[in-house]
Every structure is written in C-alpha cells, then in structure tokens.
Design a protein around this nucleic acid. Structure first.
Length: 466
DNA sequence: AACAGCAACAACCGCAACCTA
DNA sequence: TTAGGTTGCGGTTGTTGCTGT
C-alpha cells in the first residue's frame, strides 16, 4: 500500500531556520530529484545548503535511497521475494541492507518493515518464525560455514549465553535486540573478529559475498568454486527462477586455495599460498610464536539467527582455553579435527536423512572388522538424527554441552512446509487478514503445537489475531 | 457513526565504520 | 596519528488508513 505524500506542509519548523522533519512533500521530492540529477549522489550534507531544502543531509539521503532513486520496486513483495527474505533472514539475521542487495529494487527499510510486521503477527499468534525447511537448510548452511571458518584460536564470541538457537522455530518471543544482537551485528563484536575475507580495493572494505545478483561470489576475481558441493533441496528450487542460488550459498573457498572437497584446516602453515587470488586477503596470526596464515572469512559477517545457533554451539564445543599459551598447536588441531568430524557426521546425516549413528558406524567400521550393533533404521526424523548425533559425538570423545544436546534433541520434527513457502498458491499477505486454504492440502498437521500445520499456519492464512 | 486495534509504511535517531585532510 | 566530517546500518517511533466491533 503506497501512501501518497501529502502536499500539506503540516510539519512546521520548530523555529525559523531549523531543519524540517516529518513527511516529505512533493515539492521537496522534486527539488531533491533535481539536485541529484544535477550533482549526483553523495555529499548529502551539502544538499540542504545548495538546494534550499530544509532537510538534513541524512534525511535527504534516506529519502533518495528509499523512495526517489530510480529502479525502485514499489508495491507488495512477491511470493518469491518473501521466500527469499525468510531464507536470508534465517541465514543472515537482521542484515537488512544485505538482504536488500539480494532483492533488486527493494530497500532495507522495506524489508525491515516487512519482516517486523510479520514477526509481530506471528509472535502474537504464538507461531514459529521460520518454516522447518528453512531452519534445516539454514542450519546446514551455518554448519558448512563453520567447517570452513572454524577458528580455534579466535573465539572471542561469547558462549556464556546460549542463544534461542532454534527458538526461532518455536513459539517463543524473539528479542532480536538482546544478546542475539551482539551475535549478529558485527559492529558489536570484539575487534578481534575482524573480517578476513576479500576486500574491496577501493574502499578497503569487505566485499559483500551477497552482493548484486550479477557478481555474486566473484568480485575482484574471487573465483567461484563448485568443488564444494552443496546439496540443493527442493526448497531452493525457486531460487533458480529469477533468483541467484549462489546468493544464499555458504561462502566458498577460492578454488585456487582449496581445490578439493576437503575443507581447509582453519590454521594452515604460512607457506600456504592464499594471497594468490586477487581480492582475497589472508590474515596472519601467531600461535606459540609460529606464524600461521589464516585463510578464512569471518562467519560473524553473515551470521543469522540460526547462525548464532551454530556459532554458539561451536563455542560450546570449542575448548575456550585453547587460546591459552600452554596449548599446543597439535593438541588444538586434534581437538578441532574431532569436532569437525562430528560436524561433518551430523551434517551428512541431516543431508541424507540417515542417522548419525549409521554414519559414524560406517566411518568406524571402515578401518575395522565388522562387529556391528544394529543400526537404527527408523530414525530418519531430525529428532532421531539429532539424538544420535549427540551419542555419536560422545563416542568420539567430544565434549558436548547440555545446551547443545538440547538443541539437537529439540530439532523440529517432521513439520510440513507451509504452502506459501513450498511454492503453493500465494496470496499477498499485505492485508494480513485474508484467509485461504489449499484445495489439495497435504495431510493434517503433525505438530500443531508449533503451528506448521496446513490449516491456518502459513503467513498467509494465519489464524485471526485478537 | 464512532471508536479501537492493527498493519503498513515513512521517517528519525544513535551508533559505528569509513574517509580525508 | 588524529580529529572532524560523511556514510551506512539497524532499531525505534510516528503517521495513516483499513477493518471489525
């Protein structure tokens, strides 16, 4: 619903000469458009001086960016856009600007408003925020990130508080501005978690790995590698219909750095050539007086709510004392290796729908004579997988915090994907009041408690909110 | 018709990072 | 190296219109 800007200058100046606030008038818009067309964008503080507008530069920039600049898409979000937003939010968190970069013509403010209004609605209805499929894929996404970005010696992220983890999938109030904020907002992070990815040569800024759809993952010669196979579930098929799938894929190692499927160790000898790729900057760190090249991106750069889940889980897994001067590189590496194995096992099990126990047994038996205990065949549910994942992790002697076990054991189980997400008939929910049902609705809900049933559970047909 | 509640949207504010002299 | 200016981002608040009672 677009509201026309009133011509009435109802917002009076506080006093003569002050900068005006409130809604913009058409006249003001015209002045700003004319100014930008003449002088171009930027140097916003000079706009009020040179154009005669009684608006601060900041306000001018915002007005231009959100409403006046060309190629802005107006109107309600399309179903595809909405699904992209949900997916991106699961992966990135409240990174509105980055999300906007994935949605041409959309502004961060639009996306933010879209999200907030729907979150509020769902919260009020006591419904989960993300569809289960999104949770699963985002979890895999972050697990993969962790495989690449595990930083045994750089663990300044707090693990003191276990974030809501999958709380986003449960009818639990989400307070995005609480401790979670510290996890998703890189600005709030400890300086030691600085970005280590490719940099923009001009500004010496990190290159957004989620940049415009035309240059994803290959800015500044950063080569996209397909070596690291990412299973694309049917849930992501829609991305190929006008949206770039790679935009939501985990960051990939430069092909010249890692040409095999094996994730690079987080700490590699300094002799490794990681600076050969233009735009990719390897950072050095000293451990026990030895120089190591750390070639990795900071996962904190694109962490989402579910990312916080994994990061905190990782922090739990990680021995927080590994930064101690007494730790040896070897010991830490072994520990890290075990943890990574566990993650791989979990991940593979989640992907294939097999049990972690089975995966682990296969791994164990690959070097031993068979002395098998029956392998669970019924545990294809995520809950079962998660449960067995924790068992598997115990077996390989990885310390496993109760909280993380709780996370795995509470992994949402067998919740059907709502029709709006799975590409069914979608009705714009801008009004938020209409109700509709799929004529060929899948079987009745399995987990009505969480609201991911087929009757009145999608964002389009949420139950009426009192 | 009047009112309340709500959703959607626009705009502001504070903070932090970046840039440059 | 530093300080001031600029820009970008995310959270919050205010406004408007619609719907239901």
């Amino acid at each position: 619903m677009m509201r026309t800007i009133s011509n009435n200058n109802e917002v009076e100046n506080d006093y003569e000469g002050s900068l005006k606030k409130g809604p913009w008038t058409q006249d003001e818009d015209a002045i700003l458009i004319d100014y930008v067309n003449t002088y171009g964008e930027g140097n916003w503080n000079s706009v009020p001086k040179n154009s005669g507008l009684s608006r601060c530069g900041k306000s001018c920039r915002l007005r231009w960016a959100n409403h006046l600049r060309p190629n802005l898409k107006k109107g309600a979000f399309s179903p595809e856009e909405e699904r992209v937003i949900v997916d991106l939010h699961a992966k990135l968190g409240n990174k509105w600007a980055r999300m906007a970069s994935q949605l041409p013509g959309r502004t961060d403010n639009e996306i933010k408003n879209f999200w907030n209004t729907r979150i509020k609605r769902r919260e009020r209805a006591g419904l989960p925020i993300y569809p289960p499929e999104v949770i699963r894929d985002a979890t895999l996404y972050h697990i993969r990130e962790e495989q690449y970005f595990d930083q045994p010696y750089n663990s300044s992220l707090s693990s003191s508080s276990f974030p809501p983890l999958l709380s986003s999938s449960y009818p639990k109030k989400l307070n995005a501005s609480s401790h979670y904020h510290a996890l998703v907002n890189p600005k709030k992070l400890n300086a030691s978690n600085h970005y280590r990815g490719p940099l923009n040569h001009k500004k010496n800024q990190p290159i957004s790995l989620y940049g415009s759809s035309s240059n994803l993952f290959n800015n500044n010669g950063f080569v996209i590698s397909n070596n690291y196979a990412r299973p694309v579930s049917h849930d992501y098929q829609y991305y190929n219909n006008g949206f770039n799938t790679s935009s939501i894929m985990p960051p990939l190692a430069p092909s010249s750095v890692s040409s095999s499927i094996t994730p690079p160790d987080s700490v590699t000898p300094a002799s490794s050539n990681v600076s050969g790729v233009d735009g990719f900057m390897g950072a050095s760190s000293k451990v026990n007086n030895e120089q190591y090249e750390v070639s990795q991106f900071s996962p904190q750069e694109n962490i989402g709510l579910l990312g916080a889940l994994v990061v905190d889980g990782r922090s739990i897994l990680r021995n927080n004392k590994t930064r101690s001067e007494d730790s040896t590189v070897v010991a830490a590496a072994e520990k890290s290796s075990n943890k990574r194995k566990s993650i791989v096992i979990m991940e593979n099990a989640l992907e294939r729908g097999t049990t972690v126990e089975s995966a682990l047994k296969k791994k164990k038996n690959s070097g031993k004579s068979s002395n098998e205990t029956p392998v669970s065949s019924s545990g294809t549910g995520k809950k079962q997988i998660a449960k067995e994942a924790s068992l598997a992790l115990e077996e390989i002697d990885v310390s496993w915090d109760d909280d993380l076990c709780s996370l795995l054991n509470n992994f949402p189980t067998e919740m059907p994907t709502p029709e709006w997400y799975s590409g069914g008939d979608h009705k714009a929910e801008s009004s938020g009041r209409e109700t509709h049902q799929q004529p060929n609705a899948p079987p009745p809900p399995i987990d009505q408690e969480l609201g991911w049933n087929n009757v009145g559970t999608s964002w389009n047909n949420m139950p009426s909110i009192c």
